[in-house]
């Protein structure tokens, strides 16, 4: 079956100016996202994973133009969203929805749930007014709430229920792509599982496509078809879930996966411990962004930006941005340091 490209991001950059000096001139930029490209196919779930400051949330916001991207193209069904005028963009907003970590922050607390949903439909003019009430009840039931709760206010709901309201709002305009920005991160495990299952069911039922932004590798492993690993505004590795979790090639991906504590006390694990902190995105390291912490860093890594590409031993579609994938795999290149710990 031929996969259909739904979203194609090309050379996306998001630089935020830093004001300073005597007259508030722009003195520098935070390079939050620096030239990334990837494709999302219809009906799949692609996750962007990474630590704080890697640019994963910024990417989601730039795609929706919640912040205007500095450069690059964002093709949605062939149309470059980044080049559209504001009013043309508004028409496309219906197809791309976003769910945030804290739905409470994005819902007007003085609006009843039905008004929240009604407003979303009103803006996009999705249904004749008379049919909306019925649709609202239907939506609430779809996301596992009770239709009779339609006239309650957001503060009367728990965190998990509010996230369901956020999902219902996104669904109300029949979108094709939903960007989930840390959508389950604030929820307790037992509630998180409810919401993850709901997202699964909705995807099956409505053929939705998800761009799932998260720092939680357990959640990412569960929900994704493909995974993008970001570090300091760059893609380090991209691939299908199996490749990323079972056959990671980039030293950063390896360290990241190794660092997660696993809920299995029978498995004695040595964790790779990376040195130091993530550098500032204001003056990111030259060459490979990861070289300051990478155990395998060579001179070349300090000067040349590695290309994201398929290396030996990697499947089609599995790409890593590292100069020395082969050398590390073969054991030819020895680590400069190797700190491990068991907890």
């Amino acid at each position: 079956m031929e996969k259909k490209e739904l979203l194609k991001v090309e050379g996306l950059k998001q630089y935020f100016p830093i004001k300073g000096g005597f007259f508030g001139r722009t003195v520098n930029h935070v390079k939050a996202v620096d030239d990334i490209s990837f494709t999302v196919y219809e009906g799949e779930t692609v996750s962007i994973v990474g630590e704080s400051g890697c640019g994963k949330s910024t990417t989601g916001r730039a795609i929706l133009r919640l912040e205007e991207p500095s450069d690059g193209k964002v093709y949605f069904e062939g149309t470059d969203l980044a080049s559209l005028s504001k009013s043309e963009m508004r028409k496309h907003r219906k197809d791309l929805q976003i769910i945030f970590q804290d739905p409470y922050a994005s819902i007007n607390p003085r609006q009843a749930v039905s008004d929240v949903l009604n407003e979303a439909m009103e803006i996009q003019n999705v249904l004749p007014r008379k049919e909306r009430r019925k649709r609202i009840i239907e939506l609430l039931e779809t996301v596992g709430l009770n239709g009779s709760q339609a006239d309650r206010f957001p503060h009367e709901f728990s965190g998990g229920q509010r996230q369901r309201i956020g999902i219902a709002r996104a669904l109300s305009v029949n979108p094709k792509l939903i960007i989930c920005d840390e959508a389950v991160s604030a929820l307790d495990v037992s509630i998180q599982a409810q919401v993850l299952n709901l997202l699964d069911e909705l995807q099956e039922e409505y053929g939705l496509t998800y761009l799932f932004i998260s720092h939680d590798l357990g959640v990412v492993r569960h929900i994704s078809d493909r995974v993008i690993v970001m570090y300091l505004g760059k893609i380090m590795e991209i691939g299908d879930k199996k490749s990323i979790f079972d056959n990671p090639k980039h030293p950063y991906t390896k360290a990241l996966l190794s660092a997660i504590p696993v809920p299995d006390p029978d498995r004695e694990r040595e964790h790779i411990v990376l040195r130091g902190d993530v550098p500032s995105p204001i003056d990111p390291p030259t060459g490979c962004r990861f070289h300051t912490r990478c155990p395998f860093a060579q001179d070349k890594c300090r000067t040349d930006v590695p290309e994201l590409k398929v290396h030996d031993g990697m499947r089609e579609g599995h790409e890593a941005a590292c100069h020395f994938v082969e050398e590390i795999e073969s054991g030819q290149l020895k680590p400069n340091y190797m700190e491990t710990a068991s907890f």
């Binding site: 630590e51 704080s52 720092h215 590798l217 360290a255 990241l256 190794s258 660092a259 997660i260 504590p261 964790h271 790779i272 411990v273 990376l274 902190d277 993530v278 710990a341 068991s342 907890f343």
Partner: peptide, 11 residues
């Protein structure tokens, strides 16, 4: 973050 968590738990 996860990589920092690993440092602290190890410590």
């Amino acid at each position: 973050d996860v990589t920092i968590q690993a440092q602290i738990l190890g410590l």
